Structure formats: structure tokens, C-alpha cells
Simulated scan of single mutants.
Amino acid sequence: METLLKLVAVLPWPDWLAIALFVGGWVAYAAFARRRAATQASILGATNRIRRQWMLQTTHREVRVIDGVVIQNLSSSPSFFASTTILIIGGLLAVLGTTEKASELVREIPFAARTSVLIFDLKIVVLLAIFVFAFFRFTWSMRQYTFGALLIASAPEASQFTERQLSREAFADRAGRVVGMAAEAFNDGLRAYYFAFAVLGWFFSPVAFMLATLGVVYVLYEREFRSEALEVLNG
């Protein structure tokens, strides 16, 4: 508690303003993207429709080897990022163990802000928290892809959907939603990486931090709602 009060007193108000903009920007954009996707075309919405169509086609296939291969390939991306994130977390923990030397090294970088060791520790802890969040989202994405693979493997044969009057649409909705949730979790992890780059601007100045945060929000919006890939997917 004493350390927290000391931090509140030591950290200048521009830094608090930059932190507020960062947290508010991340939370607000995540909420905005989720709601906007319901009324406007987005990358996630477009790919979710394709996932549902994929699962619908799965019900017509007798042999579903290709579906298992696709699921495996999709799950390899969050697996790679989860492994990479663990290495980043380890590196940040190592930096916390040698804060004074790392702080001196940062001071040698041109235009980098001269701060106390306590504030430098705070910046590292913020980065650490972001990558821990990303790790949990990537691993949850991996598990949900596993759930999707289980649904595909347990699906009745194509002929049984007709013979037993099973609903292909219901299966496509359920399996497509599970795979879509895996993609959403992976998207959250990637978004955390983007915002981690914004935090790097904090090592230079609070203004750079705020500008980087706004820049990340702009880039995310452009890629999710106004990219050429979206036009192709909706074409």
C-alpha cells in the first residue's frame, strides 16, 4: 500500500493521462468492435460466416480428413503465439530482476524519457500484464479449436443426416460458433500484441504513448472494418 501511494505521488499527471487513454482506448475499442460487427461488415463477422458455411459443407462429406487438417492448421497459430508469449514474459521477468541496468540502458536511447527505477518497473509490469493476458487468450483459443475438432469428429455421417432427419443447420450453427469463438480469442491475443507496441512509446514520453495508442486503435479499425481483405471476403 505504501508503495502504491508512493507511485501515485511520483508518477506525473501526463503519465496517468496516458495510462487512462491506453486502458480506455483498449476497452472502448474492444466493446465498439464487438457491437459494430453486429451492424457493419467486419473481418471477424465475414470469417464467421465462412466458418459456418464450412461446417455446413462438412455435413455433406463422408470423409472429413480435410476438415481435421484445417482445424489443426488453424490451431497452430495460437500455439505458436502462446509459445512466443511465454518467452516474452520470461524476458520481461528477467528485466525486472535487473531494473537498474535496464533503466540505464534505456536512458542511452535517443529521445527516451529519464525516469526513476520505480516508474521504469511500472512500465515493465504493464507490459508483463498485457502479455499474460495475451497468453491466456491464445491458450483458450487452442482449447476451443480442440472443441471444434471434437465436434467435427463426432458429427454423424453425411447419409445419417438424411436418414435420421438430423438438422445440418443446427450442427453448422453450433460447430461454426465454437470455431468462431476460438478465432475471437485468438483475435484478442493479437490485439494485445498491438497495444503492447503502444506501451513501447511510453519509454520515450507520455505523449508518444498517447499517440501510439491512438495509432494502434486506428490501425485496428482500418484492418477490421475497412481493409481490402474484408472487401474480398464479402465479395
Results as ranks from 00 to 15, higher is better:
122 L>F: 08
180 G>S: 09
176 G>Y: 08
143 R>P: 00
36 R>A: 11
39 T>M: 02
53 Q>P: 06
35 R>S: 08
233 L>K: 11
133 F>I: 02
28 A>R: 15
168 R>T: 01
60 H>T: 10
116 S>V: 05
148 G>V: 11
15 D>Y: 15
78 P>V: 05
148 G>T: 11
45 G>I: 02
100 E>G: 01
210 M>F: 13
22 F>E: 08
136 F>H: 09
165 Q>C: 02
199 V>C: 12
31 A>I: 12
200 L>Y: 05
116 S>G: 13
79 S>T: 14
116 S>N: 07
21 L>C: 12
75 S>Y: 03
192 A>K: 08
33 A>P: 07
69 V>F: 12
88 I>H: 05
162 T>Y: 03
19 I>W: 15
142 M>W: 01
19 I>P: 11
117 V>N: 13
68 G>V: 01
219 V>R: 15
189 G>P: 04
92 L>T: 01
63 V>I: 10
202 W>T: 04
128 L>K: 04
146 T>S: 07
70 V>M: 15
221 Y>E: 14
16 W>S: 13
108 E>C: 06
218 Y>S: 09
220 L>I: 10
40 Q>V: 09
8 V>D: 07
118 L>E: 15
194 Y>C: 04
28 A>P: 11
154 S>R: 06
29 Y>L: 09
70 V>I: 15
40 Q>P: 00
187 N>A: 13
228 E>L: 06
143 R>W: 06
138 F>G: 04
154 S>T: 04
100 E>I: 07
51 R>Q: 14
203 F>P: 01
125 V>A: 15
5 L>A: 08
113 A>F: 04
153 A>N: 15
154 S>K: 02
215 G>L: 13
66 I>L: 12
172 A>P: 05
229 A>T: 14
146 T>I: 07
124 I>Y: 06
83 S>K: 14
11 L>V: 12
94 A>C: 00
85 T>R: 06
232 V>T: 12
26 W>A: 08
3 T>I: 12
3 T>F: 10
202 W>N: 02
101 K>A: 15
